[in-house]
Design a protein around this nucleic acid. Structure first.
Lengths: 147, 147
DNA sequence: CTAATCCTTCCCATAATGGCAAGGTCAAGG
DNA sequence: CCTTGACCTTGCCATTATGGGAAGGATTAG
């Protein structure tokens, strides 16, 4: 089948199929005499695998690792699990960061009247002199007063 | 002060200050006779504002809106709050997406032995024929059995 | 044969950020 | 006065995954 049909069958756009080929994630497809890429059901299967991994937020390089393990019938499931758990940790970390932002901003918004007057705690916070990435700054342990 | 000092004072890299200038987020700085950009304390203040907004995940264009409101002393706080709450919703949505991915993948990993044998439910899931973006697919209501 | 559809490659754009390079500027010190 | 080092300038490249579009060739349906 041509790339369009493979795209429809796999849920991966033709554009992305070519991209995955260019990055080496998938092997270059066979070509017809006139240069059209040709795919078979196994290719579509691999593309679906890729789509599933992509939907779970894996990057192209991680998908490459997973594809290699998928094809390696003597893989150790521990290797797959390690990749998966590492990715779970990354996803959770990203979610945590977003939620921290959300929480902070929500807190500011909760204190904003939201009326037609200019007073706004949100802008006041943004304009306040020192905003610190809190968790990243080390606080020196309090010493016995030296003066 | 020159751009380097403004960068150190604001926590925004010189590179990004130039970038923000190029995108129109901030006005082009004054220049010395030899072309060096010159900043004053008000500029640094604005850069800190930008940094704070950036830390809360606002895009450059959103920061532009916020800066405009900050400078508009006759703004309505409702306008600021609306932007903030819209952003809160976006952040939460992104966090939800990441968590859904994480949850799914964690679930799969929980069923994987993680030993040196090849059997792996994670890969089996990825290779399964139909993965559906679940929530987005409409299920036809069950009809009275027709056959 | 022609029109429509499909394919190819190539370039562009996105968002925010860093890196590098070539070259001009400035301040401190000999 | 000149050198050295730190700093500045612009410009280009790279990142990640994705889509858009153009120009032109291939195929297929009528």
């Amino acid at each position: 089948m041509n790339i369009g049909k493979a795209a429809r069958a796999s849920g991966i756009s033709a554009k992305m199929i070519r991209y995955y080929e260019s990055t080496g994630l998938i092997a270059g497809a066979e070509r017809t005499a006139s240069g059209y890429r040709v795919y078979d059901h196994a290719d579509v299967h691999a593309l679906r695998f890729i789509g599933r991994a992509r939907d779970l937020g894996f990057s192209v390089s991680q998908m490459g690792e997973l594809l290699a393990l998928w094809r390696d019938h003597s893989r150790a499931s521990a290797d797959v699990k390690a990749i998966a758990l590492r990715h779970v940790a990354e996803l959770e970390e990203k979610a945590r960061v977003l939620q921290a932002m959300s929480r902070t901003l929500k807190h500011l918004a909760d204190h904003c009247n939201g009326d037609d007057r200019p007073h706004c705690p949100i802008l006041e916070d943004f304009a306040a002199p020192d905003h610190v990435p809190a968790r990243s700054r080390w606080r020196p342990p309090p010493m016995a007063a030296a003066g």
